[in-house]
Nucleic acid binder design. Structure first.
Lengths: 99, 99
DNA sequence: ATTGTATTTAGATATTTATCTAAATATCAT
DNA sequence: ATGATATTTAGATAAATATCTAAATACAAT
């Protein structure tokens, strides 16, 4: 299930940009960090929140930590939004009441 | 276009619950507030952020302010998430490079 | 016009968050 | 083992956020 951590993670523009970058494929932390004007420590903080939300996965490769997108969680998040669009299931339909 | 304000708005559980409540149909501020254990002033703050994000619309009806969902903006937000799932358009395809 | 009801605004406070610098950890190369 | 590179962790700080109480605004009813 999708939880609070996912929406929190998506609320920050830096983190959304990280996700966009990872669309193109996996990438080591340092390479991702090069896209941003902040310190690697700050980026590491963002990585940590994305991992908490399970929006990204990591794999160590030598000295680097390679990040990649976890698409299923984002699909779920999009699904939750879509869900908000449909009227809720009713116990007794309006039609039924009018019959 | 979908902006930061939408993601900020969606980041809070109270506000997502407000949206869920409004799925069933428009509702005056006070009635919405009754669903939550916080003051009406606090709820009003949340309404304000949802309005800023254009996720809800308002209409005055006598002494009440009736809130309703703006579905198009949420559709757009869901669309943005979906977008993050597809690989970006490439300048030259991998296939082309290998030919 | 006064009173009551519905909602928002203002101001205060506690918590959370994004960012930094400096230090710690892990791996690789020599 | 020593030194270099990559990343994270710790601790500090400034800014943002959620919440409250009290006051202000808007409308309705008498």
């Amino acid at each position: 299930m999708i939880g609070q951590s996912v929406f929190k993670a998506l609320a920050d523009p830096t983190r959304r940009e990280i996700l966009r970058i990872l669309r193109a494929g996996s990438m080591p932390a340092g390479d991702i960090a090069d896209h941003f004007p902040m310190t690697k420590a700050s980026l590491s903080h963002h990585f940590s929140l994305l991992k908490q939300a399970d929006l990204v996965r990591t794999e160590r490769r030598g000295q680097q930590i390679v990040y990649s997108l976890n698409t299923t969680v984002m699909q779920d998040a999009a699904g939750v939004l879509m869900e908000l669009l449909n009227p809720p299931a009713t116990e007794v339909t309006d039609d039924a009441k009018n019959r």
